[in-house]
Structure formats: structure tokens, C-alpha cells
Write a protein that binds this DNA or RNA. Structure first.
Lengths: 230, 230
DNA sequence: ACCCTTGTTGAACGTTCATTCAACATGGCT
DNA sequence: AGCCATGTTGAATGAACGTTCAACAAGGGT
């Protein structure tokens, strides 16, 4: 019926036309297409109600196709999680590089990156959360589920320590870094669960208010409602 | 075969003997028993692999029993979530009352309550996370999933505002409260996903380090590795 | 033009699971 | 003691789903 047309749900218009001559949508492209459809389904129906048929339908392909490109549902889901994990890591690493050398700017860049549409869409957040919910009972997921993994955590600690040295802050950098990373994750969670009363902008505001409070010599208080003295 | 014996998995030894004379374990007690078994199963197998048979086996009862006390799997899960939600709310409200009138002590009490074994066991965290993963696709869950709900959030904002007034802090109380609540949730998430490198104590330390940093005039820096100047 | 490899389809199969139900047990009441 | 309401059991049922597979389609190389 329809080959690769009709992808009304996915956000990213993949397949840059160079790769898909007719049906020869190179193996990797097809896999990506199915992974995107999987994210869609996870976001829309949740983990427990995501079926192979959903994914295939969402991609506009036939039922059996998923077992051809991925061997099983399990492997499709692992590949999807891996894809998101790599995408997230590449995103914050890229932001870090673009930020230059100043630790304050680097920290701001990492925090801002977290609220970028590319990784912080409703769709992606929902998919992350779907995996989180299954992580504890599946070791394979568990390793990939710390989107903010060890490297991320070390980077945060280094940045917090550099700012503490520079600004003469008295806190323990490791604890503050852990708290900051947890807060970013928690804000993601709220963005995903909460409906109307919170949005990306508000969450980012709270994150930067936090930076301004913890590193007062490096970040200005932005939305100052209260002006200083009490 | 076995009636109410053999509950090797559940942490809380329920049924205070007063309620269960033989098999007459009053309706409510049986419901609780099944809810506890559901939490066990959610924690051990995850949402998607929690079956009615698991729950019944975990409670040491027969297959059909769950549909007798709860009409359906759906309703069992909603009841379980409701139970956890009410338990959590009662817990922080209790801590708040016991803390007295001093806003600093009240805030400390709410934060400490979050890391109490009663609500912060591996088992409960895993169950929470299982529901979070399905929340976006089920409106019924969504409402109950904000364990830290509106009342909680308002309380936090009030406490932060009171401390800001008293200590002359310049931050925006609403944003700081949102950040703090998100951080607590994020720490929960890490406790649940991460295995060895984090534990309740570490998480609580990070939370209080955060309090000490944001409200320096109200909370001392505890684990001071760096002593003040830089 | 032919064939062989690779990709794709949809139906069939077997398993797993929630739900239903008829039969059975027990406790309380008279 | 005998009876009824309330619990409880385990097997039967039917639906949903992942996986398999035989058949079909389309390049690409010769």
C-alpha cells in the first residue's frame, strides 16, 4: 500500500532523500524510522501498551517488518534506548564544546542544553520515563537509563569545583553537582507528568534561579521579584 | 493449601492479629494485603510484567481472588497508586506537624521525611517509578502521580518565602521551591535507577547541602570538605 | 533478460494473561 | 445444629500479542 509515506506523528522529518531511492531505504534508515515510531508509541501509549503492530503501523509498514530489522521486541526497545542515550550525550557534549573555556559559561550551556527542544520534547521525555519505569527490573535498561551518566556527573563535579575555587564558595562540589543533576532530572519528570502548570520555560527559569543562588558571583538573579534585603 | 501464611517478600508485617481471626481477614485487610503484593510485584518485575497471577501468588492466595476484591487489574493498580499517594501525603504532613513552628525546622522536616525508610524504600521507589512510566498515557494515573502535589508545592513555596523574608535572601521563592521539589524527586529517581554508587544517606546529604547553600543563614554546612575561603 | 540477494508482506501459530464462573469452604446467626 | 451470606478456589474461556514463515517484489550484477 504505502511505502514510506504518512508519518503524521514523528517530529523529525528524517530520510534526507539522498538515502532512499525507491524502496532501497538503506538498512540504517529503516532502523531509524522504526526507532522513531517506537518513541512515538512509547510516548502515546506507554511502555506496557506499546506493541509491535503499533510500531509497524506508526512507521507505515507491515507487521512482520520489525522482526526483520530487529530480531525481537526486546532488541527494538534496547536499540531505541541506546539511540536516545547517545543522542542525549552528543547533545550536552556539543553544547559544552561550543561554550568555550569559561566554567560558568560551560555550566550554563550544559543546563540550557537540557531544556533544548531536541532532547526535551514531550515525546522524548515520555519515552525516557517509560524506560525509567522498567529500568530496575531489567539490567540492560538500567545501564542505559542514566542519561546523565558517570561522564556527565564527573563533568558537573569538575565545573562546580572550578566555580567554587574561583568564587570562594564553601559548599562541597560533589554534593552540589549531585543535587543539580538530580534537579534537572526532576524537572524533566515534572515536565512530563504535570500538564499545564509547568513548561520548558518555567523549568529552565527554576534551574537558572538555582544556579544564581548557588553561584551568586557567577550568575545574576534573573527574574528578581524580591530585590535583596528583607 | 496455604491461607495467609508465607509472605516472604513484603517488608511490612501487616495484619496485627487483631483483625484476622482465621480466614475472616476483613475485606479491608485483604485489600491491603493484595496492594502490598502489587507493590512487591511492581518493584520486582516492573509494570509491564506485573500480572494478576504474580500478585495472587505473592499474597499467597489463589488466582481468582484479585478480581473479587478489586474488579479488574486496572482498578487494582489505581487503588495501589492511591494507597501510596495517601501514604506519602500523610507522611510529610505528619513530619510537618511534629516539626513545630520554626520555618527552618519545618522545611528540614519535610526534606528529611522524603528519605525516611517508610516512603523511600527501594520497593516503594520502584513502584512509584513504574507508575510514572505509564502516567502520561493514563489520565487516571497522572492525577495521582504527582506525589508531590499542589498542596505539597504550596507548602514548599510558603516555607521558602518565610525563610527568604527572615534571612533576607534575594531569590524568587516559587522558583526555588520548584527547584527543591524537583531535586528531591530527581534524587528519588537516582536512588531507584542507580545501584551501588548512591544510597539514601548520600542523597539526603546532597539535599541538605543544597539547603545549606540556598539558606545559609538557616542551615549549617554539614560535611564541610572545603572550609569557606577559596 | 535472467537470477540471486535483500527487503517486505500478511496470515498462521502458540503463548500468555485477564476475566469469568461453578463449585466449595467458612463464619456468624438463629 | 443447620442455613445463608460472604470468601475463596482453580479450571475454562477468549482475546491480544510476539514470532515465524512461505510467498512475493524489487534492485543490482552479469
Amino acid at each position: 500500500m504505502l511505502k514510506t509515506a504518512e508519518r503524521p506523528k514523528s517530529e523529525q522529518p528524517r530520510e534526507p532523500e539522498a538515502d532512499r531511492k525507491g524502496r532501497k531505504a538503506s538498512k540504517e534508515t529503516r532502523r531509524l524510522q522504526l526507532i522513531e515510531a517506537t518513541i512515538d508509541s512509547l510516548a502515546k501509549r506507554g511502555y506496557s501498551e506499546t506493541t509491535m503492530a503499533d510500531v509497524a503501523d506508526g512507521a507505515g509498514l507491515s507487521r512482520g517488518i520489525v522482526n526483520f530489522h530487529f530480531e525481537s521486541k526486546e532488541k527494538l526497545l534496547v536499540a531505541t534506548l541506546q539511540y536516545m542515550s547517545e543522542e542525549y550525550a552528543a547533545h550536552w557534549r556539543g553544547a559544552l564544546e561550543k561554550a568555550g573555556d569559561d566554567p560558568a559559561k560551560r555550566l550554563a550551556a550544559v543546563v540550557a542544553a537540557d531544556f533544548d527542544r531536541a532532547v526535551c520534547s514531550r515525546r522524548k521525555l515520555a519515552a525516557w520515563c517509560a524506560f525509567w519505569g522498567e529500568a530496575k527490573s531489567r539490567p540492560t535498561y538500567q545501564a542505559l537509563c542514566g542519561s546523565r551518566d558517570l561522564a556527565y556527573q564527573n563533568t558537573m563535579v569538575d565545573l562546580c569545583a572550578a566555580l567554587a575555587r574561583d568564587g570562594g564558595y564553601a559548599f562541597n562540589p560533589e554534593k552540589v553537582a549531585l543535587g543539580l543533576a538530580a534537579m534537572l532530572e526532576g524537572l524533566w519528570l515534572r515536565l512530563m507528568i504535570g500538564g499545564e502548570e509547568i513548561n520548558r520555560e518555567k523549568a529552565q527559569d527554576a534551574a537558572f534561579e538555582h544556579l544564581a543562588t548557588v553561584f551568586p558571583r557567577h550568575f545574576p538573579l534573573a527574574g528578581t521579584r524580591r530585590a535583596s534585603a528583607g
